[in-house]
Design a protein around this nucleic acid. Sequence first.
RNA 1: GGCGGCGUAGCUCAGUGGUAGAGCAGGGGAAUCAUAAUCCCUUGGUCGGAGGUUCAAAUCCUUCCGCCGCUACCA
Length: 508
Amino acid sequence: MSKTFYITTPIYYVNGAPHLGHAYTSTAADVLARWHRLAGDEVFFLTGTDEHGQKVEAAARNAGIAPQEFTDRVSADFRDMAQAMNISNDDFIRTTEPRHKAACQAIWSKLQENGFIYLGAYEGWYAVRDEAFYDESETALKPDGTRYALASGAAVEWVVEPSYFFKLSAFQDRLLAFYEENPGFIAPAAKRNEILSFVRGGLNDLSISRTSFSWGVKVPGDEKHVMYVWLDALVNYLTAIGYPEMSGPRAKFWPASLHLVGKEIIRFHAVYWPAFLMGAGLELPKKVFSHGWWTVEGEKMSKSLGNFIDVRPLVQEYGLDQIRYFILREVPFGNDGDFSKESLHRRINSDLANGIGNLSQRTLSFIGKNAGAAVPPKGSLTEADEALLAEAAALPAKLHAAMDKLAFHEALDEIWRLIRAADGYIDSQAPWSLRKTDLDRMNSVLYTLCVVLRTLGVVLQPFMPETMSKLLDYLGLDEARSLAVLDVPLAEGTALPTPTGLFPRVGV
RNA sequence: GGCGGCGUAGCUCAGUGGUAGAGCAGGGGAAUCAUAAUCCCUUGGUCGGAGGUUCAAAUCCUUCCGCCGCUACCA
């Protein structure tokens, strides 16, 4: 009986174009999804786009097109990015879909029925020009006594707007108890501390509807209101598994195993979302993990600098798997990191071309030229062979441990230890000398190396699916390529194709 | 202002009481199967500063300096 694993990315807000940050979240989620599939789990991997709200409405107006047409375009661009990154999502949800609106309205009704929604008034400094509320700290007084928004300079006025509220304040104790009982719910630990201190500081009820714009999900029974975008957005995780129908084919995936999010939205996922779910009487997700941000060549990506990186040209220039590898290897997951050409080149050349690429090429081309282009006979193994094979056999367990805590960089580091060990092994065994003195021994060495390469190829598939598929082809493996195949003896005598380099070096 | 995190080799980081580590980068050597890739050896650190606890501190405590995050509030 296989375990289920439900992983999500945030749904991306279609206010702007997809960039490195989105690709990062999606790639990390993809690696986990692929890893769990490899381990035999039943995986449901969800991503999508968040398409409602005032900003989208305004962006569409600026573009001179209807909001739906606007979101169709941008959503398609996100899908294109996912495809370019080889993201293996099982569904792509859009909040403008009927299934999602139905789910939002259903959970709203449930929360209302349970007594957690009431009608009140949202008050604040409102800038008509910006169509936005500002906190008083974000505003200042002009000499003539009028108040304006610091960010935009637009005049603001005190506005009272009717709004529905969610009784978030009622959940403080329940949330704290939940965090206490589930210490792994928020990760990394630093983020957990922040959330704990935020919740301990007291929770205000949350305004969850607006009447100032209409591009959103209508509040059931009061269509002047549309739902606050975050309630709308978070519910997508339920929509996709069929909510409110909890007996469909995907219902078994609830509660979600992991919500992967950027650090800027951890609070929504670690506070508001659990509270909504508690209010609706639903189970809470197992874990929310907040990852860091990328700077580019040392500078923060920002609208003012206009330096958002689109990964698609990078994939064109360097290769897909090279980019996937880099973003997961370069930075401890959870930390911020810097994306620079220099470090990208170093990773590609040192780790990929000189590492796994060279190891496979020197082994496979040697077999092609000197061992009949087939998996050599195993023969009898020496201590050195057994030692290397033992190291390979120990790898999956180490990787499970690292992947369970989302330590991609650690997982890759473990894999590279084996690569270095294998390179050392070749040098010490010197099959090029054995070729002249002891063919049986040479074959055993090459066989051992094939087994190690199979291990490497299999466990690296989640990170670099295209290239590792190529490597496993070179090893003559059939379509059975999950972790389980590592327990099956490698078939001797399988004919092997002529290999080519997996990762070309890049210029410095 | 409150809470929290970080500061260890040129770079990125691991190491939470018992002789300072890894990868990359640098230097030397070996090998020649391989994308001149690989292997071995090696240079390099007063573990941010000061003080304290301890037989013993990168690790615990105090304080100072620097960087960062969350949060509150005020003129």
